[in-house]
Design a protein around this nucleic acid. Sequence first.
DNA 1: CGGAGGATTGAAGGCTATCAAAGTCCGTGG
DNA 2: CCACGGACTTTGATAGCCTTCAATCCTCCG
Lengths: 231, 231
Amino acid sequence: MTACETCVVRNRAICSALDNHEIAALSAIGRRRTVAAGESLIWEDDDSLLVANVIDGVLKLTTSTEDGREQIVGVAYPSDFIGRPFSQTSRASVVALTDARVCVFARNDFDRFAREHPELEHKLLERTLAELDRTRAWMMLLGRKTASEKIATFLLDMSDRFGETGCAPLRRPAKRFTLPFSRQQVADVLGLTIETVSRQFTRLKQDGVIDLPSRREVDVLDRGALAALAG
Amino acid sequence: MTACETCVVRNRAICSALDNHEIAALSAIGRRRTVAAGESLIWEDDDSLLVANVIDGVLKLTTSTEDGREQIVGVAYPSDFIGRPFSQTSRASVVALTDARVCVFARNDFDRFAREHPELEHKLLERTLAELDRTRAWMMLLGRKTASEKIATFLLDMSDRFGETGCAPLRRPAKRFTLPFSRQQVADVLGLTIETVSRQFTRLKQDGVIDLPSRREVDVLDRGALAALAG
DNA sequence: CGGAGGATTGAAGGCTATCAAAGTCCGTGG
DNA sequence: CCACGGACTTTGATAGCCTTCAATCCTCCG
């Protein structure tokens, strides 16, 4: 019996393209591992050796300049696929934001397996296209939105992300949620400084749009106001 | 005989995954058309009805806010694939920057054909992954670079893009090239205003890093300086 | 030659970054 | 239980980069 049979993301990750026989074969070339919060799984510009499915936890994808400026270019949640298949190098680092569990594969093995299983490649294609859509929407935010618009858009995005309690069509935005990000990481997502993020948060709190029960928790009091601010 | 047999991008576009028999079948569901400079091919948030291969010309992919701010989120050159397969809606507009020729397909037809031809889907996957890499690198630029770093990075990118005279491994950056963008469009690519773009261009010219023979032409005089400025 | 759109240049202001300091939270150890 | 230390966050003051607003200039065509 493989670990896949009881895997919580079995039906949401790209694995859902495979039947039980195929998934046993995939399972044979992968293994589970844990990644502690703060630990790196993939390094920017290094050889692309690993790809993985996220089982549990949240990870950030980042790129950095030589002088240490960082931009978070993506965030991976359970059932997301990470790593760069079909390429010698990865152009983003992957670091766990929380303790995480992932299902890792040697890239070479995965590439070979994927090419032999078109349904898997199709799922991967759909995921990659959707990620590209999200990324492009984020480019608009980074290039053209003000700090307050960025924060509002970010909070709505988080609210939607963590509201996925039921099935997709019944998905409701979360009124209250816990950020997997520190203030600095929020800044790195939005292309701002930590001070600007902090100031925007306190302003929204003062205006009664949100409440901040603790450093990582956000309570959306006035979703309409957020939507209006999001630009 | 199909138009594909003499197509200049036959061996570079995703069509290269198909043999002559298959390409005849693909050709049967597509047709060629021209797009005049400034003309739209796909509208943001509209039904995703079309996908296409670019045969000739340059097109921009853009997203806009309600109040009219625009961000160019991608640029399509000959052999590139445009449009959003496997989705009801497209989240970016596609507008021709120059007169262009494209090979268009009804999205439904293309989707069906792609699912029946795994090699085609594989090519599309590789392209989409590469585009995602480029897009993420651009997020770093939008979020964390200064105006002069943005301009320098942009010019290097253009220089590399238009230096593709020979085969891939022998590709050399172009010393001189013609921009397919107006100053406003450069601004929309970089998340700046037209005035800032203009000022940065003249500064680089004054510093002897580039020359500007005409509005659309750039001559790179000191590539090392550009690279140093690019951050 | 004249007009129109695009580009450049100038002046001023605002938004966000930077620098600096105080405050808060939380785990550790006394 | 409380004191302490360190990391993270908030707040304040200032500076500067880029935008905004405005005017002029260029260049291409009719």
